[in-house]
Simulated assay, not measured.
Amino acid sequence: MTVEVGSVIPPWAMPDVSPERMKTMAAILRDPYPVHWDRDAVEAIGLGHRVINQGPLNLSYIVNMLMAWQGPGCVRRLRVSFGPPVLDHDAVTATGTVTAIDDVDGERRATCEVRLERDGEPVVTGTAVVRCGDGATPEVG
């Protein structure tokens, strides 16, 4: 697949955000915030009775999409803003579109708008710069 401005990155889906993974990630990160494993803590802050996914896990879904598209080690820069929380058992999809192609020190790079969406609404938005591994000449336009 030739990467060019306007190319749509194949989406990457997480059909069921697992509360068990959130609890495991909280332990790995040594994250003491109970909203990632204690439903009562979430309810106490007025967000219902579902635990909240960690930001790094939400970010990893976008990184998974980029690596599935251009391979391991392709991400050169990633800047995102976090929106509404992702909750246990949500279905989310990472999406993206190429907005620019550049040559940096002999390496083709694509600048991409990226998003993590739930029900078509963004929960994470940002910009990624990715090494393009397809070897094709970019069509900039």
Results as ranks from 00 to 15, higher is better:
M1R: 14
T2P: 15
E4F: 15
G6I: 15
S7W: 10
I9C: 09
A13P: 02
S18Q: 08
E20K: 13
R21Y: 13
T24F: 08
T24C: 11
M25I: 02
A26D: 01
I28H: 12
L29C: 09
D31I: 03
H36K: 02
A41M: 09
V42W: 00
H49V: 04
I52S: 01
L57V: 01
N58R: 12
S60K: 06
V63C: 14
A68F: 04
W69G: 00
G71D: 10
G71M: 10
S81C: 09
S81H: 06
P84K: 07
P84Q: 07
P85N: 01
V86E: 04
D88E: 15
D90P: 05
A91S: 11
T93Q: 10
A94Y: 13
A94L: 15
G96C: 11
I101M: 14
D105P: 02
D105K: 11
T111R: 12
T111P: 06
C112I: 13
V114R: 07
V114A: 05
E117C: 07
G120M: 04
V124K: 09
G126N: 00
G126W: 06
T127W: 00
A128H: 09
V129H: 01
V129E: 12
G133P: 11
A136T: 11
T137Y: 02
P138S: 09
V140Q: 05
G141W: 03
